[in-house]
């Protein structure tokens, strides 16, 4: 029992950086813009957060700076793909390279340094609930932020007018345009906000998970997040489930090894997260209800241009 709680708690912790990135990309993609530069954005977030936190000794400022930096780089992507209509895949990959390179360069002098970090902050009363408290309410403040961010994103996307406009732009940009919606502006805003949230996932790695900067510290999480966006069918709550599932499988296989009582090959344990993802995808897509709702925004990856319309 004790071990199960620990595993679930670890699942939330290690799923959180993925969740930030997945959530950011969902917002971006819902507007019809694909951003494959998540890995780069996470690294930008990680280094900016660390630099600011190190120099100001204020971890909150670091986190905010990370989100601003992510927004700026996402804006660059937006300019490329929305205004210049560069191929979104190419621009996204370029953003990953750019983010990796710039973060590496900026980070040179910060290697071996330690900055303030978000420490564990148990929520009174809630953390005393047996089980639930240990799993969900014995983390740092950034984890709690996602508890707000996920329902908020869901609410805005599906229950408000701005959210409806954003989704309309991602599904039928020309129809939205004819209703007087500024498609470019909506996509700019969605991409920028999405980038800021993705970078927050990177900052989680350098400000909460650890308190250090090392190059490429996101170690491929940006790519996993892209897969999770599809897994989650572009929905925030499923993104949460997917992120925790992924984090949880990883935590389980490590803990089974540490427990020392299980004699399963570590290779098989390593495959668990991927098998779980596959199984979940099969279950999700075989149910009629889910299948109808699954599917990318129709205009995803297609640059919008008013002139081309006749």
């Amino acid at each position: 029992m004790e071990m199960i709680l620990k595993v679930l708690s670890a699942a939330v912790r290690s799923g959180t950086p993925l969740l930030f990135a997945t959530l950011g990309e969902i917002i971006t993609e819902r507007s019809g813009v694909m951003n494959l530069g998540l890995e780069g954005l996470m690294l930008i977030g990680a280094i900016t957060g660390f630099m600011v936190s190190y120099n100001t000794k204020n971890v909150y400022l670091g986190f905010i700076a990370a989100m601003i930096a992510g927004a700026i780089f996402a804006l660059l992507h937006a300019f490329m793909v929305i205004t210049l209509r560069v191929n979104q895949v190419v621009s996204g990959l370029a953003l990953t390279m750019l983010g990796t390179g710039i973060s590496g360069m900026l980070g040179r002098s910060y290697i071996g340094q330690v900055a303030p970090k978000f420490s564990e902050m148990r929520i009174p009363i809630l953390s005393d609930i047996p089980g639930i408290g240990e799993i969900f309410f014995s983390h740092d403040i950034l984890v709690y932020l996602t508890y707000i961010l996920v329902p908020l994103t869901f609410f805005i996307l599906f229950k408000t007018k701005p959210g409806m406009i954003l989704r309309a732009v991602g599904e039928e940009p020309s129809a939205a345009d004819s209703r007087g919606i500024n498609v470019y502006l909506v996509r700019y805003i969605a991409t920028t906000i999405g980038g800021a949230i993705t970078s927050a996932g990177g900052a989680y790695l350098s400000l909460a998970y650890t308190s250090m900067w090392i190059e490429n510290m996101s170690a491929g999480r940006g790519w996993i997040a892209i897969a999770l966006v599809i897994f989650s069918a572009w929905e925030p709550f499923k993104a949460m489930i997917g992120s925790y599932l992924f984090g949880g499988m990883m935590a389980t296989q490590l803990r089974l090894q540490a427990g020392g009582k299980v004699n399963i090959s570590a290779n098989i344990l390593m495959m668990l997260p991927y098998i779980a993802t596959l199984v979940a995808m099969v279950i999700f897509s075989s149910s009629e209800k889910f299948r109808k709702r699954i599917g990318a925004p129709t205009a995803l990856g297609i640059p919008y241009s008013r002139e081309e319309k006749t």
Binding site: A10, S14, L205, T210, A219, L254, A258, G260
Partner: peptide, 27 residues
């Protein structure tokens, strides 16, 4: 000496999680 394999040379988050799992196991 309890051993946990991460199957990666370099992934700070997994490395930390592996260490935590060992600490939870009494290390």
């Amino acid at each position: 000496v309890k051993v946990v394999w991460t199957h990666t040379w370099y992934d700070p988050a997994i490395e930390k999680e592996a260490a935590l799992s060992l600490l939870d196991a009494g290390a």
